[in-house]
Amino acid sequence: MTELFDALENFSFMRYALFVGILSSFTFGVVGTFIVTRRISYIAAAISHSILGGIGASIYFNRVYGLEWLTPMLGAIAAALISAGVIGWVTLKFKEREDTIIAAIWTCGMTAGLLFIHYAPGQAVNLESYIFGDILLTSWSDVIATVVLAVLVLGLVGLFYHKLVAVCFDEEFTSLRGVSSKLYYFLLLGIVGICMVLLVRVAGIVLSIALIVLPAATASRFANRLWSIMILAVILSVIYNIGGLAFSFQMSVPTGFFIVVTAGVVYALSFCFKRRKN
């Protein structure tokens, strides 16, 4: 632990990583709770994989057409929102083929990204950092982007909390109260999409779903109100992130792997205890 404090004092990238890890934990805890209770983990996974399509396309068009403003983060946000919109539309309109279409978006998004990156001219892209994440590569611009996205996500959830809960629990009644359940379902998926973009830096595309789902799933076994699950999930996420950072710095292993394995073990251990009831 002493080495971690020394590293935080001496290296700005460690401070950035810690700050991004803690701030993102709030987003993961809150949004993860909606994902777990609404049972849309597979949708979140599809969105996270399709993000690679946006990252690859932004790198390709940036290099080929000199669009410098088109950063991988911007491409990731666009891909996340587009895939969230398409998945939302499909789940509302074509329920009978929902799983098939989500699987198509999942795989096509990811392979499109790999193709774009393959044909992008210039320096080779560090694909591993996108697929498995590396929080230690966090830059100042990543910190700014994380702050903006976290404020956006938490602000939207705070403003529309009750409507989002109502849509998750009973879409029909929500509509009868004059609240567009479709609009708020799309909003929820949009929030999930932005959250998955944040996760790409911390845990990467492949591991991101575990980091957003496991803390909330563990918390849901011990808390029985939505807000209390969110608080517990945030605490767990912060612990996993700080622990992962300290361990990975000490042992020179990727942070994401440690975070996800720890979260998975804690979730498995949670089954040793009885689910809390009122």
Binding site: T37, V165, A166, D170, S180, N224, L226
Partner: peptide
Amino acid sequence: LFPITALDIVLMGRLDR
């Protein structure tokens, strides 16, 4: 498994656009 209380559900009756 949806974590919601009776009061939370009744409060849905107070939702408006």
